[in-house]
Nucleic acid binder design. Structure first.
Lengths: 196, 196
DNA sequence: AAACAATACGAACGGTCGTGCTACATTCGG
DNA sequence: CCGAATGTAGCACGACCGTTCGTATTGTTT
């Protein structure tokens, strides 16, 4: 069962496809993903890629899942290892800004772009993206609540979490749309003021 | 020249098409706009719609222009009539949140969705969207600078403008993606704290 | 060794896309 | 009133889409 060469090979191709898929989707959206394009770029057959996922929607869902794993490994997991309260809050914001600025995905934050794409369209893809986005928002919120409980901060933790999340996303949006890094500097100043 | 029945008819059809186009694009994006779909929904011929714009890119540019006019009439123009400084800043934020919440465009803020779609793709459409978005950001920034100059507020006007813009967009994003109006309430609380 | 499962392929399907070309009313300027 | 300009329709095109099918290959299981 573990030493199954077929599954191993299939998984390797799957990973290859998904690595490309998340990059494509971060620029052209999940609708801009096309089986033919992926197959051509990776020198695979279109039907082979299709067979790997079963349908375009399944490919989209797998792409969201793959992007979530990358996002977690860059932003959430390292921040979760930092001591609770304001230090962890700072880590979340800084990791996220870095993740956006370094273009872990070439189109900027994957979930920002894809979220805006599917926000007004019902379906399983929408739900998957909303769940991923919501779980990150919850992580910020819980950390903010903790920071207040620990006496690191005063005020409304929910509003603070909303503000921090908003500032990061705005920096990503402005930087990707207009180029330059000025937006990140503005966000860092605003976040710093909120967490001092 | 003014009493040109042909041009009048052409303009009327053009307006008809664009009104639908902005609604479609706010949900499905500028790439989701298709000549065939617009023609079918409006009971026109595909080639007729095509001839009206000359190319899909021209249709997209005209759609952005039409959306900008609607945006201005709802948000910018009424706010520009309010006395400068903090009152005008409040008006901008409140008009914008209303514009998003009332779903002037069915997919939420047109420029938020379309901006995320074209942000990482070069071209004339990208430039048009970036210019529109930038001019609104500049309007907020100038109003914030004025508010500081008038002594209504202290602090960094650029950062403040960035924060206000960020809070509005985040409210739009969360509300459209997850439903409900809680995000607007959070944004209003945060904006109120920033402008008191 | 035989039966089976999974990868990957090439070819083809019906459909939609953007884009031309042609044709025909309608309405204009002279 | 006539020729030109214009709005709109019909039709066909090549390209690409997601999907299906048949098939060769390869690894696993019994």
């Amino acid at each position: 069962m573990p030493a199954d060469g077929r599954l191993a090979r299939g998984d390797a191709t799957r990973r290859l496809v998904l690595r490309r898929a998340v990059d494509v989707a971060s620029v052209d959206g999940l609708e801009g993903l096309s089986l033919g394009r992926l197959a051509t770029e990776l020198e695979l057959s279109k039907s082979g890629v299709f067979a790997l996922f079963g349908s375009k929607e399944e490919l989209q869902l797998a792409t969201v899942e793959a992007a979530l794993e990358i996002f977690r490994s860059y932003v959430v997991t390292p921040a979760a290892a930092v001591e609770p309260g304001v230090p962890r809050l700072r880590a979340i914001c800084e990791n996220w800004l870095d993740y956006s600025e370094k273009r872990v995905f070439p189109g900027g934050c994957f979930f920002f772009n894809v979220g805006a794409e599917v926000d007004a369209r019902p379906g399983r893809v929408h739900d998957a993206v909303a769940a991923a986005s919501g779980s990150f928002a919850a992580f910020i919120r819980e950390t903010a609540v903790e920071a207040v409980a620990l006496g690191h901060l005063t005020g409304d933790a929910e509003v603070l979490a909303f503000e921090l999340h908003a500032l990061g996303r705005a920096a990503n949006a402005d930087a990707v749309l207009n180029g330059g890094t000025q937006a990140y500097a503005l966000a860092r100043r605003a976040i710093g003021a909120r967490l001092s």
